[in-house]
């Protein structure tokens, strides 16, 4: 999926004080790219990711996904975009505690129902778990998994509905460096194998550099873009 933004701007109001989170961001990301957005906290990188992921809406500016402009006022179209084309990976994994690993992976397919039958969904979820190397932990509850395993399940879940764009918000933030590296390797591998675009927010510039394109952001503006 190609991603393009034009003059993307986001203000917050903290009481009477205007906070500028994004200040005219122009961005162009090609199909199948692995983009890392780096910057200190408060730089606006998470806001950018949330807006691209249709979880938040911009104050001004336009976002084009695969060339089509996103209409942030149309709630229904945002739901469809999230459901069919986007996949999320969070810093805190956000697995559903009541469901085991394979059910967590199946969960997004549930909202995309007409697609498959229950058994097909389970089969696909098992395949995705195998892809992240966790097929043996399929029936474990999140409370029985380690941090690295949780994030692998979360990544498998992000792939559940066959998204064209994966948005990862500090996916290694809660992991030790060794586990974090294995997660990044997994994302890189999936990026190569599945050919979908990945946008990752991180503050680990060193590892970001190894992944692909790095976008530095500061005070809501893009500082530089390195390939």
């Amino acid at each position: 999926m190609t991603v393009e933004t034009k003059g993307l701007t986001k203000y917050y109001w903290m009481g009477k004080e205007k906070v500028v989170a994004l200040d005219g961001v122009d961005l162009k990301i090609e199909e199948g790219e692995f983009i890392s957005i780096v910057g200190p906290s408060g730089s606006g990188k998470s806001t950018l990711l949330n807006i691209l992921g249709c979880l938040d809406s911009p104050t001004k500016g336009k976002v084009f996904l695969d060339g089509a402009q996103v209409d942030y006022r149309n709630k229904r179209s945002l739901v469809i975009l999230r459901r069919k084309f986007l996949g999320f990976v969070f810093q805190t994994f956000n697995l559903i505690p009541a469901l085991n690993a394979v059910e967590n992976v199946e969960y997004p397919m549930y909202f995309n129902k007409p697609l498959k039958s229950k058994s097909e969904r389970k089969e696909k979820a098992m395949k995705l778990l195998a892809l992240v190397g966790l097929e043996k932990r399929a029936n474990h509850l999140p409370s029985e998994l380690s941090g690295g395993e949780l994030q692998r399940v979360a990544i498998a879940r992000a792939f559940a509905n066959g998204p064209k764009l994966i948005l990862a918000d500090e996916p290694t933030g809660n992991l030790d460096s060794v586990t974090g590296r294995s997660i990044l390797d997994l994302l890189t591998r999936l990026n190569n194998e599945e050919k979908m675009t990945i946008i990752m927010v991180t503050h680990d510039f060193e590892s970001a550099k190894r992944m692909g394109t790095v976008i530095r952001i500061l005070d809501g503006r893009i500082q530089e873009q390195e390939r």
Partner: peptide, 16 residues
């Protein structure tokens, strides 16, 4: 609340 937010991020509609 988090779980609801997550479900929405994963494609759940208000009705879901």
């Amino acid at each position: 609340t988090r779980e609801i937010g997550l479900s929405k991020a994963l494609g759940a509609s208000d009705l879901d």
